[in-house]
Protein backbone atom coordinates (compact mmCIF):
# COMPACT_ATOMS: atom_id res chain seq x y z
CA UNK A 1 0.00 0.00 0.00
CA UNK A 2 1.52 3.29 -1.03
CA UNK A 3 0.99 6.63 0.55
CA UNK A 4 -1.85 7.69 -1.63
CA UNK A 5 -3.76 4.49 -0.95
CA UNK A 6 -3.32 4.89 2.77
CA UNK A 7 -4.69 8.39 2.58
CA UNK A 8 -7.68 7.22 0.54
CA UNK A 9 -8.44 4.45 2.96
CA UNK A 10 -8.37 6.84 5.84
CA UNK A 11 -10.75 9.22 4.12
CA UNK A 12 -13.12 6.36 3.38
CA UNK A 13 -13.12 5.16 6.99
CA UNK A 14 -13.75 8.61 8.29
CA UNK A 15 -16.52 9.12 5.79
CA UNK A 16 -18.27 5.87 6.78
CA UNK A 17 -18.06 6.72 10.43
CA UNK A 18 -19.55 10.14 9.72
CA UNK A 19 -22.41 8.65 7.78
CA UNK A 20 -23.06 6.11 10.53
CA UNK A 21 -23.18 8.80 13.20
CA UNK A 22 -25.45 10.99 11.12
CA UNK A 23 -27.92 8.19 10.48
CA UNK A 24 -27.96 7.14 14.10
CA UNK A 25 -28.78 10.64 15.24
CA UNK A 26 -31.46 10.91 12.63
CA UNK A 27 -33.16 7.67 13.63
CA UNK A 28 -33.06 8.41 17.33
CA UNK A 29 -34.73 11.75 16.91
CA UNK A 30 -37.39 10.58 14.34
CA UNK A 31 -39.91 9.17 16.81
CA UNK A 32 -40.46 12.51 18.31
CA UNK A 33 -40.91 14.44 15.14
CA UNK A 34 -44.39 15.34 13.96
CA UNK A 35 -45.10 14.29 10.41
CA UNK A 36 -47.67 15.83 8.06
CA UNK A 37 -49.89 12.74 7.77
CA UNK A 38 -53.63 12.77 7.11
CA UNK A 39 -55.98 12.79 10.10
CA UNK A 40 -57.45 9.40 10.96
CA UNK A 41 -60.71 8.48 9.27
CA UNK A 42 -63.88 7.93 11.22
CA UNK A 43 -65.06 4.48 10.27
CA UNK A 44 -68.37 3.03 11.36
CA UNK A 45 -68.56 -0.71 11.59
CA UNK A 46 -72.04 -1.99 10.87
CA UNK A 47 -73.45 -5.44 10.89
CA UNK A 48 -74.74 -5.36 7.37
CA UNK A 49 -73.25 -4.05 4.24
CA UNK A 50 -75.05 -1.02 2.99
CA UNK A 51 -76.46 -0.92 -0.45
CA UNK A 52 -74.17 2.03 -1.08
CA UNK A 53 -70.71 1.47 0.14
CA UNK A 54 -69.35 4.78 1.42
CA UNK A 55 -66.48 6.10 3.41
CA UNK A 56 -65.24 9.58 4.26
CA UNK A 57 -63.05 11.17 1.72
CA UNK A 58 -59.38 10.86 2.35
CA UNK A 59 -59.06 14.07 0.38
CA UNK A 60 -61.86 16.48 1.06
CA UNK A 61 -63.87 17.48 -1.90
CA UNK A 62 -65.98 20.59 -1.89
CA UNK A 63 -68.44 19.33 -4.43
CA UNK A 64 -71.21 17.08 -3.09
CA UNK A 65 -70.91 13.51 -4.18
CA UNK A 66 -73.51 12.48 -6.71
CA UNK A 67 -74.69 9.54 -4.68
CA UNK A 68 -75.90 11.73 -1.84
CA UNK A 69 -78.53 13.26 -4.06
CA UNK A 70 -79.57 10.19 -5.94
CA UNK A 71 -83.30 9.66 -6.35
CA UNK A 72 -83.25 6.27 -4.73
CA UNK A 73 -83.75 8.03 -1.43
CA UNK A 74 -87.41 8.19 -2.44
CA UNK A 75 -89.54 5.65 -0.63
CA UNK A 76 -89.93 2.37 -2.37
CA UNK A 77 -92.94 2.58 -4.64
CA UNK A 78 -95.68 0.02 -4.20
CA UNK A 79 -94.22 -2.13 -6.89
CA UNK A 80 -92.53 -4.15 -4.19
CA UNK A 81 -95.81 -5.84 -3.38
CA UNK A 82 -97.02 -6.27 -6.92
CA UNK A 83 -97.60 -9.95 -7.60
CA UNK A 84 -95.22 -11.66 -9.94
CA UNK A 85 -95.73 -10.27 -13.41
CA UNK A 86 -96.75 -12.43 -16.30
CA UNK A 87 -94.05 -13.90 -18.36
CA UNK A 88 -93.28 -11.47 -21.10
CA UNK A 89 -91.60 -12.39 -24.27
CA UNK A 90 -89.25 -9.45 -24.09
CA UNK A 91 -87.68 -11.08 -21.06
CA UNK A 92 -86.06 -13.60 -23.29
CA UNK A 93 -84.43 -11.05 -25.53
CA UNK A 94 -80.77 -11.43 -24.82
CA UNK A 95 -80.15 -7.78 -25.42
CA UNK A 96 -80.73 -5.05 -24.92
CA UNK A 97 -81.86 -5.37 -21.35
CA UNK A 98 -85.54 -4.52 -21.26
CA UNK A 99 -86.32 -1.24 -19.61
CA UNK A 100 -87.93 -1.69 -16.26
CA UNK A 101 -91.66 -1.44 -16.81
CA UNK A 102 -92.21 0.84 -13.83
CA UNK A 103 -90.09 3.87 -13.14
CA UNK A 104 -89.82 5.74 -9.92
CA UNK A 105 -92.39 8.51 -10.32
CA UNK A 106 -91.20 12.10 -10.67
CA UNK A 107 -87.63 11.18 -9.86
CA UNK A 108 -85.96 9.52 -12.74
CA UNK A 109 -83.13 7.32 -11.74
CA UNK A 110 -79.88 8.87 -12.71
CA UNK A 111 -77.25 6.38 -13.45
CA UNK A 112 -74.54 6.85 -10.89
CA UNK A 113 -71.07 7.37 -12.07
CA UNK A 114 -69.60 5.16 -9.44
CA UNK A 115 -70.21 1.46 -9.53
CA UNK A 116 -71.13 1.17 -5.88
CA UNK A 117 -74.10 3.45 -6.32
CA UNK A 118 -75.69 1.33 -8.98
CA UNK A 119 -76.75 -1.38 -6.57
CA UNK A 120 -79.93 0.17 -5.21
CA UNK A 121 -81.19 0.72 -8.69
CA UNK A 122 -80.44 -2.84 -9.52
CA UNK A 123 -82.35 -4.10 -6.54
CA UNK A 124 -85.24 -1.81 -7.29
CA UNK A 125 -85.46 -3.39 -10.66
CA UNK A 126 -85.33 -6.79 -9.07
CA UNK A 127 -88.46 -6.07 -7.14
CA UNK A 128 -90.10 -5.14 -10.39
CA UNK A 129 -88.95 -8.30 -11.93
CA UNK A 130 -90.91 -10.91 -10.21
CA UNK A 131 -88.77 -11.70 -7.26
CA UNK A 132 -89.57 -13.90 -4.39
CA UNK A 133 -90.76 -12.21 -1.28
CA UNK A 134 -87.40 -12.79 0.33
CA UNK A 135 -85.67 -11.05 -2.50
CA UNK A 136 -88.21 -8.24 -2.34
CA UNK A 137 -87.56 -7.80 1.34
CA UNK A 138 -83.88 -7.68 0.64
CA UNK A 139 -84.47 -5.08 -2.02
CA UNK A 140 -86.61 -3.09 0.38
CA UNK A 141 -83.95 -3.20 3.05
CA UNK A 142 -81.34 -2.14 0.57
CA UNK A 143 -83.42 0.75 -0.66
CA UNK A 144 -84.25 1.82 2.86
CA UNK A 145 -80.60 1.81 3.71
CA UNK A 146 -79.89 3.93 0.72
CA UNK A 147 -82.76 6.21 1.55
CA UNK A 148 -81.78 6.82 5.12
CA UNK A 149 -78.17 7.13 4.36
CA UNK A 150 -77.36 4.35 6.74
CA UNK A 151 -73.96 3.00 6.13
CA UNK A 152 -72.77 6.05 4.26
CA UNK A 153 -70.21 6.95 6.87
CA UNK A 154 -70.17 9.34 9.73
CA UNK A 155 -69.51 12.38 7.66
CA UNK A 156 -72.47 11.75 5.41
CA UNK A 157 -70.76 13.65 2.70
CA UNK A 158 -68.37 11.10 1.41
CA UNK A 159 -68.28 9.73 -2.07
CA UNK A 160 -68.84 6.03 -2.51
CA UNK A 161 -65.79 4.00 -1.86
CA UNK A 162 -64.71 1.17 -4.06
CA UNK A 163 -66.26 -2.01 -2.72
CA UNK A 164 -64.17 -4.72 -1.34
CA UNK A 165 -64.20 -8.04 -3.13
CA UNK A 166 -66.27 -9.50 -0.31
CA UNK A 167 -68.85 -6.75 -0.61
CA UNK A 168 -69.11 -7.18 -4.33
CA UNK A 169 -69.59 -10.89 -3.94
CA UNK A 170 -72.25 -10.43 -1.31
CA UNK A 171 -74.19 -8.12 -3.56
CA UNK A 172 -73.81 -10.44 -6.49
CA UNK A 173 -75.17 -13.28 -4.43
CA UNK A 174 -78.34 -11.34 -3.71
CA UNK A 175 -78.64 -10.19 -7.26
CA UNK A 176 -78.02 -13.38 -9.19
CA UNK A 177 -79.94 -15.73 -6.94
CA UNK A 178 -82.95 -13.47 -6.87
CA UNK A 179 -82.91 -12.91 -10.60
CA UNK A 180 -82.61 -16.58 -11.44
CA UNK A 181 -85.02 -17.98 -8.85
CA UNK A 182 -88.33 -17.12 -10.59
CA UNK A 183 -87.24 -18.90 -13.76
CA UNK A 184 -85.89 -21.87 -11.88
CA UNK A 185 -89.13 -22.18 -9.93
CA UNK A 186 -91.21 -22.26 -13.09
CA UNK A 187 -89.19 -25.04 -14.66
CA UNK A 188 -87.82 -27.23 -11.90
CA UNK A 189 -89.12 -30.79 -12.26
CA UNK A 190 -90.99 -32.56 -9.51
CA UNK A 191 -90.45 -36.11 -8.39
CA UNK A 192 -89.50 -38.45 -5.61
CA UNK A 193 -86.21 -37.49 -3.97
CA UNK A 194 -85.91 -34.42 -6.15
CA UNK A 195 -84.73 -32.54 -3.05
CA UNK A 196 -81.64 -34.71 -2.96
CA UNK A 197 -80.50 -33.62 -6.38
CA UNK A 198 -78.26 -30.63 -6.96
CA UNK A 199 -77.08 -29.26 -10.27
CA UNK A 200 -73.86 -27.30 -10.05
CA UNK A 201 -72.50 -25.11 -12.79
CA UNK A 202 -70.35 -22.08 -13.36
CA UNK A 203 -71.93 -19.10 -15.08
CA UNK A 204 -69.61 -17.40 -17.52
CA UNK A 205 -70.79 -13.83 -17.62
CA UNK A 206 -69.83 -11.13 -20.10
CA UNK A 207 -68.89 -7.65 -18.92
CA UNK A 208 -72.34 -6.40 -19.96
CA UNK A 209 -74.02 -8.97 -17.71
CA UNK A 210 -75.13 -11.27 -20.50
CA UNK A 211 -74.52 -14.96 -20.17
CA UNK A 212 -71.58 -16.13 -22.22
CA UNK A 213 -72.24 -19.72 -21.30
CA UNK A 214 -72.07 -22.28 -18.54
CA UNK A 215 -69.30 -24.67 -17.71
CA UNK A 216 -68.32 -27.35 -15.24
CA UNK A 217 -71.86 -28.72 -15.06
CA UNK A 218 -72.12 -31.46 -12.48
CA UNK A 219 -74.89 -33.13 -10.53
CA UNK A 220 -75.02 -34.76 -7.13
CA UNK A 221 -77.69 -36.65 -5.20
CA UNK A 222 -78.92 -38.74 -8.13
CA UNK A 223 -80.55 -42.06 -7.19
CA UNK A 224 -82.93 -44.60 -8.70
CA UNK A 225 -85.98 -42.56 -7.79
CA UNK A 226 -84.91 -39.19 -9.17
CA UNK A 227 -82.73 -40.32 -12.07
CA UNK A 228 -85.60 -39.63 -14.47
CA UNK A 229 -85.41 -35.95 -13.59
CA UNK A 230 -81.63 -35.71 -13.89
CA UNK A 231 -81.50 -34.34 -17.42
CA UNK A 232 -84.46 -32.04 -16.96
CA UNK A 233 -82.99 -30.70 -13.71
CA UNK A 234 -79.85 -29.69 -15.53
CA UNK A 235 -81.75 -28.32 -18.48
CA UNK A 236 -83.94 -26.15 -16.26
CA UNK A 237 -80.94 -24.79 -14.37
CA UNK A 238 -79.33 -23.65 -17.60
CA UNK A 239 -82.61 -22.30 -18.91
CA UNK A 240 -83.21 -20.30 -15.74
CA UNK A 241 -79.80 -18.69 -16.04
CA UNK A 242 -80.39 -17.96 -19.72
CA UNK A 243 -83.74 -16.32 -19.12
CA UNK A 244 -82.53 -14.32 -16.14
CA UNK A 245 -79.61 -12.81 -18.02
CA UNK A 246 -78.43 -10.19 -18.67
CA UNK A 247 -77.72 -9.73 -15.01
CA UNK A 248 -77.48 -6.35 -13.38
CA UNK A 249 -73.88 -6.29 -12.34
CA UNK A 250 -71.21 -3.70 -11.91
CA UNK A 251 -68.92 -3.90 -14.96
CA UNK A 252 -66.05 -2.53 -12.93
CA UNK A 253 -66.09 -5.72 -10.88
CA UNK A 254 -66.18 -8.04 -13.84
CA UNK A 255 -63.14 -9.91 -12.62
CA UNK A 256 -65.07 -10.86 -9.51
CA UNK A 257 -68.16 -12.27 -11.18
CA UNK A 258 -67.10 -13.24 -14.66
CA UNK A 259 -67.07 -16.87 -13.54
CA UNK A 260 -69.77 -17.39 -10.94
CA UNK A 261 -70.38 -20.84 -9.41
CA UNK A 262 -74.00 -21.66 -8.67
CA UNK A 263 -76.01 -24.62 -7.44
CA UNK A 264 -79.65 -25.36 -8.17
CA UNK A 265 -81.89 -27.27 -5.78
CA UNK A 266 -85.57 -28.03 -5.39
CA UNK A 267 -87.60 -28.70 -2.30
CA UNK A 268 -90.41 -31.22 -2.58
CA UNK A 269 -93.89 -29.87 -2.18
CA UNK A 270 -95.54 -30.45 1.17
Amino acid sequence: MDRAEQAGLGVAIIGHVAVFVALSVSLLSKTERATPINPPMAVELIAETAAVSSAPDAVLDASPPPVATEPEVAPLPPIAVVPPPKLKIDRVQPKPKPVAPIQTPKKPIVKPTLPAASKPQSKLNLSMRDLSSAAQQEATRATERAGTGKGQGKSGSGTPAVKTAAEVRRDIRVSLAAEILPYWKRCVPDGVDIALMETQLDLRINPDGSLAGVSNVAQTGVNDSNRAQQQRHKECAIKAAQLASPFKLDPASHDVWKLWPMAFKATERK
Partner: peptide, 19 residues
Protein backbone atom coordinates in the same frame (compact mmCIF):
# COMPACT_ATOMS: atom_id res chain seq x y z
CA UNK B 1 -55.61 -14.94 1.53
CA UNK B 2 -58.32 -12.35 2.11
CA UNK B 3 -59.79 -12.87 -1.39
CA UNK B 4 -61.00 -16.47 -1.41
CA UNK B 5 -62.66 -17.99 -4.42
CA UNK B 6 -66.41 -17.28 -4.56
CA UNK B 7 -68.50 -19.86 -2.78
CA UNK B 8 -71.17 -21.64 -4.77
CA UNK B 9 -74.39 -19.71 -4.63
CA UNK B 10 -77.52 -21.82 -4.18
CA UNK B 11 -80.79 -21.20 -5.98
CA UNK B 12 -83.48 -23.26 -4.28
CA UNK B 13 -87.18 -23.38 -5.13
CA UNK B 14 -90.11 -25.18 -3.60
CA UNK B 15 -91.81 -27.30 -6.20
CA UNK B 16 -95.35 -26.08 -5.86
CA UNK B 17 -96.31 -24.80 -9.25
CA UNK B 18 -97.59 -26.52 -12.36
CA UNK B 19 -96.20 -25.67 -15.74
Amino acid sequence: ATAPAPTREIVEAVVDSEM
